[in-house]
Computed example of a mutant assay.
Amino acid sequence: MNKRLIVSALTVTLGLTAAVGLAQTSGIKKGLKITMLPKFINNPYFTTTDNGGLEAIKEFGGVGKAVGPSDGGASSQVSYINTLIAQRQDAIVLAANDANALVPSLKRAMAQGIKVVTFDSDVAPEGRQIFINQAKSDGIAKGQIELMSKLMGGKGEFAILSATPNATNQNAWIAIMQEELKKPAYKDMKLVKIAYGNDDDQKSFTEMQGLLQAYPNLKGVISPTTVGISAAARYLSTSPKKGKVMLTGLGTPNQMRSFIKDGTVTAFQLWNPSDLGYLAAYTAGSLASGMITGKEGDTFTAGKLGKYTVGKNGEVVLGPPTTFDKANIDKFNF
């Protein structure tokens, strides 16, 4: 064998050894079939979470896909879950449209050995192994009230423009916001209305219009949903109330950039949705590989995001949200 062939063979051997070493380090089985199931498709937020999940699945050698309904109804998600059961997926990673309605289907999935990871919006704990929380619910809720208070000068009427009435994450945040408002620091703030845009752009736009008409003294609106805040900002941007009614909530930088720059919105918050999907997919891969079971204290490594620990009730927290404003919004692209 000549020197060139020896060098080539050595290079191939070293490459294969390195690849095997990486596979052994990750510990995740190759070829796992994992599906991302968002609340509904064609939503920029969930497109980003799904892409983050698919990136992770590709990284650890799985077979990934993203499917979902075109509406936010629980029955639509049930149909997809049943199909995924029939397709014998190794794991389902979903953002739930309802805390309880999906549980029977998810229990059937788990009974057949399919691992279930929820993210963004949880189901009842008996319907999944692990929930990936974008941030602690109290941290999100308290952060939103604190930011709203700052924008309103600590006093006045404000409203909440939520997603669907059954959205578990939204309802948890709103309940904590209502408790937070009982503190002396917020005694001059009054929540006058909780409206629902059903995570639909036009419905959210119309609800924002209705809030401004029904409450002439309104000083602020919190919309903790990416569809709601962008639709509300679009209405506010051409309204005489622009600059007078403070709008904040949870949105993506790419959605909200123009509204920040034209003064419609001063500041809003969110986590990185791509990282949320990425973490959820790595969690699913770790579960399906038998590396973790979802019990409190389980630890695993989620690729570039590093090490995570499962907390109480099977919860894993991505991390604290970021506040976006004119000073930093151009540093982000999602």
Rank of each mutant, 00 (worst) to 15 (best):
N254T: 15
Y282F: 12
L276N: 05
K219Q: 11
N217D: 15
L276V: 14
G285K: 07
A288G: 08
L287S: 01
A280T: 13
T266G: 05
T264V: 12
A267N: 04
A280K: 05
A267R: 02
S223I: 06
A284T: 12
G277A: 12
D262P: 09
L236H: 00
A280Y: 02
I292L: 07
Y282W: 14
A284Q: 05
S258F: 05
T248K: 01
L250T: 07
Y215C: 09
G263A: 14
M256N: 03
P216R: 05
W271C: 12
G263F: 07
G228A: 14
L270Y: 11
L276S: 08
I292P: 03
R234N: 10
L287K: 06
Y215V: 12
R234L: 09
S223A: 15
A233C: 12
L250M: 14
Y278I: 13
G290D: 10
L218K: 01
K219R: 13
F268Q: 00
R234W: 03
G228R: 00
K241A: 10
G228W: 02
L218Y: 07
G220N: 03
G263D: 13
T293Q: 09
N272I: 12
I229N: 03
T266F: 01
A214L: 10
K244Y: 07
S230E: 13
I260Q: 00
Y282G: 06
Y278G: 04
S258W: 05
T283I: 11
M256Y: 02
K219S: 06
I292Q: 05
V245H: 04
T293S: 13
S274V: 08
Y235Q: 07
M256R: 03
S274I: 10
T252H: 00
M256L: 14
K261T: 15
A288W: 00
K219H: 09
G220I: 03
S223T: 11
A232H: 03
Y278R: 10
S230Y: 04
P253S: 15
G249S: 09
P273T: 13
K242P: 11
V227I: 14
S239F: 01
I292W: 03
I292G: 01
A214Y: 07
S258P: 08
A281S: 14
G290R: 08
T266N: 10
K241S: 11
F259G: 00
M291H: 05
Y235W: 11
P240Y: 01
S274A: 14
S258C: 10
V245D: 04
V227D: 01
G285A: 09
A233P: 05
I229H: 02
G220P: 04
L279H: 08
I292S: 05
